[in-house]
Amino acid sequence: MSDIFQQNARTLDGREVTLGDYRGKVLLIVNVASKCGFTPQYSGLEALYQRYKDRGFEILGFPCNQFGNQEPGDEAEIAQFCSLTYPVSFPMFAKVDVNGDDAHPLYRELRKAAPGVLGSTSVKWNFTKFLVNREGSKVQRFAPTTKPEDLAAEIETLLG
Rank of each mutant, 00 (worst) to 15 (best):
N65H: 07
N99M: 07
G14P: 11
R23T: 08
A143D: 10
A33I: 03
G24H: 07
G61H: 03
N99H: 10
S2A: 15
G20F: 11
C64G: 07
L28T: 04
K147D: 04
G56Y: 05
F62A: 05
K129D: 00
A113T: 08
A33H: 09
Q80M: 01
T85E: 11
G119A: 07
R55E: 11
L151Y: 01
M1W: 09
V117K: 15
D3C: 08
Q7I: 10
Y52S: 04
L28V: 01
N31R: 06
T146C: 07
A152Y: 00
Y49F: 13
R15M: 10
P144E: 06
F38I: 00
M1G: 15
C82Q: 06
P63T: 02
D97T: 03
A103D: 10
C36A: 11
A103P: 08
P105D: 09
S89M: 02
P40F: 03
L131N: 10
S2W: 04
S120N: 15
Q50S: 08
F62D: 05
G24V: 05
A143V: 00
V117Q: 15
E154N: 13
E154S: 13
D74I: 00
L84E: 14
F130D: 13
F62Y: 12
I59C: 01
E77A: 14
L60A: 04
R134H: 10
Q6M: 05
S34N: 09
P115E: 12
Y22R: 06
M92G: 09
Y42A: 02
G37I: 00
V123L: 07
C36H: 10
F127I: 04
E109D: 15
G20Y: 13
F130I: 08
G160A: 09
G14F: 12
M1F: 14
V17Q: 15
E154P: 03
L159E: 07
D21F: 07
E154F: 04
G136N: 11
E58M: 05
L131F: 10
P148T: 01
R141G: 05
Q140A: 13
F81E: 07
R55H: 08
T157Q: 11
E154D: 14
C36W: 03
S83R: 12
V98G: 12
V17D: 13
V132D: 14
D102E: 14
N8P: 00
D13S: 15
E135T: 12
L106C: 12
E154Q: 13
L159V: 03
T85Y: 02
P72K: 01
E109W: 03
